[in-house]
Write a protein that binds this DNA or RNA. Structure first.
Length: 935
DNA sequence: GAGTTTGAAACT
DNA sequence: CAGTTTCAAACTC
């Protein structure tokens, strides 16, 4: 994990903000970029922890910070920056009685930031929102009670609105001011929290500051600057729980009725999650008190805890996700967001629950929603329109063995990864906090929630799990849900803090239950490594050792956080992917027939990133990491006599072989293959080396990187070959089948994001990212082709070449690309040169991306789907044929890529909100279709 | 529970 | 990069 310090240090964030602000002005693109970074960060524990790490995440990539700063998604960058600006303005203008001026300024600035997006209408909206936000703040400050109520109410509304807006916008595929606005709004609120929080200021100090500001604000309010507080409040009371109505309003999305809404949200955001939040919450509760089922007191208490936890979470998650500023917790917030958005259902119960919850989480929600939406857009354009839930899941592609075990056994829960915990560090809370937060949330739900509680909770859990899992692509890439989380959920009390406290009885209980419950959580028994090496499952999984552990001299504990972090850094320096999930789920699922043995269907054709090296266990024992992870062996495995019940390497290879045969591409590739790969392929397929190296192979952290390079190069001996690969895959070849499945799912309308996301192989993710960055969705067909993990690489390389015209020039630029929003239209035309250059020029960056990148990013699943859907031509794909044709017919690989795309495109149509989101995408898409029709 | 086996991680 | 050592989990008894 990244050093917590980085995440802690406000400086990075500040710089990020500044850059973000700058980037904001540039256009929506920056925003889009952030999601990837987030994914990346989430996926790789290392990067997650720190906000900074986003930028740092792929240090090697040299991604420009600005890129990451994308506004909405990258809450860090934009939000903060905007918030900073706003705050500065506010402070500077404190004396200014006329809010309108402030608002106008803020609006103007915000508009300036959003230069590209600017629309008159939007402007109005922005102005309204901004003003409202400021008003809200002022109001809040002015009248603690009423404002609190109003705020809470507003926050609820805002949350809903924002979420709705975000969702809607996402659905609409619109990356626009709204998102930006939200980001900026959020930023405003955050700034206070984040800045102070990060700076280590105590809540009290914050409160004092607010108080001081309050006076000024009060004055402003008195002058009637805040129109709507009273009105809004009244309205709120009348409608406060009418979430549906709010939601409608949000959907209307027009200028927000109440400026307050924004302001409230802002205010909430500003709340550090400390006293302010509590106060607001209290006020809210008091106001609502009569109606509230739960005693105000308890609610307040919880609220305070939630706020605190939120803050912590925010920090943690913020680190976990670069995008998130200190304020939001990703998993929980997301869950909340999702819940609120998804379950916005008008139920009073839900309302009450959501209201309390929303208030608390309001800050993060918008952000999260934005992030999610963006992520979804970036990652899964097709799914973008769908609920955030779907999006979430995808993120968690890779998992540590521990995580996997847990995940498999658990299903939902998971403890916050160490990474997250590290993020927490800044807050001085332990890693357990994440879990704690979750617990708190769950508790809050329980207390506040009504009958739906269970459902909501479950949703939350699911969401959290998905989020964690996904970002692990999310980290959660990001987030690795560990057994601990599960425990907490399961446990009633679930005191997150105690989670890691070995001595706490609760832990013991948990341990007992856990050990027996088979949550799958591994606990270490390290004796010599002090749990500071990858030998330690806990450490490797990014979690602190807990009570269940029997380790000796353990330093993998919150109290030794610095040591842990330092060690992690060291290890990461050696192998950036050391803490990345070992199991990746390539999109490609081989035909069941291939997995005969796979009696236990490998959940999603997941594979071990590096593959196993079993010699004697025949992959039938837990010695085998593949087996242990319940995944089949793949080409990447060097195992001998593989009998993995989840999937024999041989089968895997056979599948590849089949593909190859159909494509007949393999030979040329084989020639190019490096010895190692040949060796692998040979193992798999004596006759033919599988041209496509499974993503798994790529995953060898350091070592594999080189391999991956070789592979990519091999794959790209000629642009044509690349094309061939693409074309080849595009058809319904076995490989494509996976993609097709995905498409089918999507077409059904039930995009199984989870599976989809999970399905994305680590490498694929990289590919995907590249593709996204480089290519607009319309062009993605090629990407689609690469759905299979093995394909992923080729595709990746190919996509790079084809998709990213800049690949050459931007060797390091890869990072940029990576970060760049997927939406960014890529120049459809790529030169063969680029392809060629790709191999050599890409160099480390690509390697990093491919090998190191979370598969989610790489995953071309998105494109795949379209391909699949569009794969009427599936058979057409005779590999050589396509290659040559493409190559010959089209002047260059690029062209061939286009052709391929054309074929694939047809399937796309349904897909993508993302694409639709941007006109450019649509245009390209249309063009593409046209070309296709012409062809 | 001790000892053995195993393969990943770490080291050279 | 390959080989060796170290380590801890998995396994066996």
């Amino acid at each position: 994990m990244d050093s917590p310090k980085l995440s802690k240090s406000p400086i990075p964030s500040a710089s990020a903000f500044a850059s973000a602000s700058a980037s904001i002005s540039s256009s929506s693109s920056p925003v889009q970029e952030s999601p990837f970074s987030n994914y990346i960060s989430s996926l790789s524990p290392i990067k997650h922890d720190k906000a900074a790490h986003v930028a740092q995440g792929f240090v090697g990539l040299s991604s420009p910070p600005l890129v990451f700063t994308s506004p909405p998604i990258n809450t860090l960058g934009r939000p903060q920056s905007s918030s900073v600006e706003i705050s500065q303005k506010c402070e500077g203008d404190k004396k200014i009685i006329n809010e309108s001026c402030i608002l106008e300024r803020s609006v103007t600035e915000s508009q300036g930031l959003v230069t590209d997006i600017k629309n008159e209408d939007n402007k109005d909206d922005v102005a309204v929102q901004l003003g409202s936000s400021s008003e809200c703040v002022d109001e809040y400050l002015a009248d603690p009670v009423e404002t609190d109520c109003a705020k809470s109410a507003c926050s609820v509304k805002l949350n809903l609105k924002q979420s709705n807006n975000v969702l809607q916008s996402s659905v609409d595929g619109l990356l626009d001011l709204k998102n930006i606005k939200f980001g900026s709004k959020n930023n405003v609120g955050r700034e206070v929290d984040a800045a102070q929080f990060l700076s280590g200021q105590s809540e009290e100090s914050i409160e004092r500051k607010l108080t001081s500001d309050e006076k000024l604000l009060k004055i402003e309010n008195e002058q009637g600057s805040a129109q709507g507080i009273s009105d809004g409040f009244q309205k709120f009371e009348s409608d406060r729980f009418d979430l549906s109505s709010k939601e409608k309003e949000c959907k209307n999305f027009g200028p927000q009725k109440d400026g307050r809404g924004d302001g409230c949200s802002n205010f909430l955001q500003q709340l550090p999650g400390s006293l302010l939040g509590v106060q607001s919450y209290e006020g809210f509760a008091k106001n609502i008190g009569g109606d509230a089922d739960v005693p105000v007191h308890s609610m307040t208490h919880e609220a305070s805890e939630l706020q605190r936890s939120m803050s912590r979470r925010c920090l943690q998650f913020g680190e976990a996700q670069p995008e998130a500023t200190a304020t939001c917790s990703i998993s929980t917030n997301r869950a909340n967001n999702i819940i609120s958005s998804t379950s916005l259902a008008t139920n009073s119960e839900t309302e009450s629950l959501s209201s309390s919850h929303l208030d608390l989480s309001a800050k993060s929600r918008t952000r999260q929603l934005v992030n999610l939406s963006q992520l979804a857009m970036n990652m899964i354009p097709q799914c973008y329109g769908n609920s955030s839930l779907t999006v979430l899941k995808p993120s968690g592609i890779g998992l540590h063995l521990n995580s996997i075990v847990n995940a498999t056994s658990m299903g939902q829960g998971g403890t916050a990864s160490m990474k997250l915990a590290q993020a927490i560090k800044s807050t001085s809370t332990t890693s357990c906090q994440t879990t704690e937060n979750i617990d708190n949330c769950s508790d809050a739900f329980e207390k506040v929630s009504t009958p739906q509680e269970g459902a909501l909770e479950q949703k939350v859990c699911t969401i959290a799990g998905s989020a964690s899992e996904s970002l692990f692509a999310e980290e959660s890439v990001g987030f690795h849900m560990t057994p601990n989380t599960k425990r907490k959920f399961s446990s009633e009390d679930g005191d997150g803090n105690d989670m890691f406290d070995q001595q706490s009885p609760i832990k013991k209980r948990k341990k007992l239950s856990n050990s027996t419950d088979g949550d799958g959580c591994k606990r270490c028994n390290c004796k010599k490594t002090k749990c500071l090496k990858l030998y330690c499952d806990c450490f490797a999984a990014g979690i602190y050792c807990a009570e269940p552990c029997s380790c000796q001299g353990c330093f993998n504990r919150p109290e030794y956080e610095e040591t842990v972090l330092a060690t992690r850094k060291q290890i990461e320096s050696r192998n950036p992917l050391a803490f990345a999930p070992k199991i990746v789920q390539p999109v490609t699922e081989f035909p069941l027939s291939n997995r005969e043995d796979g009696n236990r269907k490998t959940p999603s054709s997941a594979r071990h990133k590096r593959g196993c090296n079993c010699k004697r266990s025949m992959c039938l024992k837990k010695y085998c990491e593949c087996y242990q992870a319940n995944v089949g062996c793949s080409i990447g495995c060097r195992c001998e006599g593989c009998k993995n019940v989840y999937g024999k390497k041989k089968d895997y290879c056979v599948t590849e072989e089949m593909v190859n045969r159909s494509g007949e591409i393999s030979e040329s590739r084989v020639a190019a293959k490096p010895k190692k790969e040949i060796f692998h392929s040979e193992l798999c397929d004596p006759y033919r080396l599988t041209p496509l190296t499974p993503s798994v192979q790529c995953s060898d952290h350091g070592k594999n990187a080189s391999i991956s390079r070789l592979l990519s190069r091999r794959c790209l001996p000629s642009p044509e070959s690349d094309l061939t690969v693409l074309s080849y895959e595009s058809p319904r070849s076995p490989r494509t089948s996976d993609s097709n499945d995905i498409l089918l799912e999507t077409s059904k309308g039930n995009l199984d994001i989870d599976s989809f996301c999970e399905g994305i192989s680590y490498n694929n993710a990289v590919t995907l990212a590249d593709e996204f960055h480089h290519t607009p969705l319309p062009n993605h067909p090629s990407v689609i082709i690469g759905s299979s993990s093995s394909k992923a690489r080729e595709l990746t390389s190919l996509s790079r070449v084809q998709l990213d015209p800049r690949s050459r020039s931007l060797t390091s630029g890869g990072s940029l690309h990576w970060h760049s929003s997927p939406i960014m239209p890529m120049s459809p035309l790529n030169d063969n040169k680029k392809l060629q250059g790709l191999d050599s020029a890409d160099g480390g960056l690509y390697d990093i991306l491919e090998d190191d990148m979370p598969e989610i990013l790489k995953d071309t699943s998105m494109p795949i789907k379209p391909v699949k859907a569009g794969s009427p031509n599936g058979k057409r794909v005779s590999p050589p044929h396509n290659l040559h044709q493409l190559g010959s017919s089209s002047s260059g690989p690029l062209r061939s890529g286009r052709k391929f795309i054309l074929k694939a495109v047809p399937s796309f149509p349904p897909l993508t909100p993302c694409i639709d989101a941007k006109g450019s995408c649509n245009q390209s898409r249309n063009n593409f279709q046209e070309n296709r029709s012409n062809d």
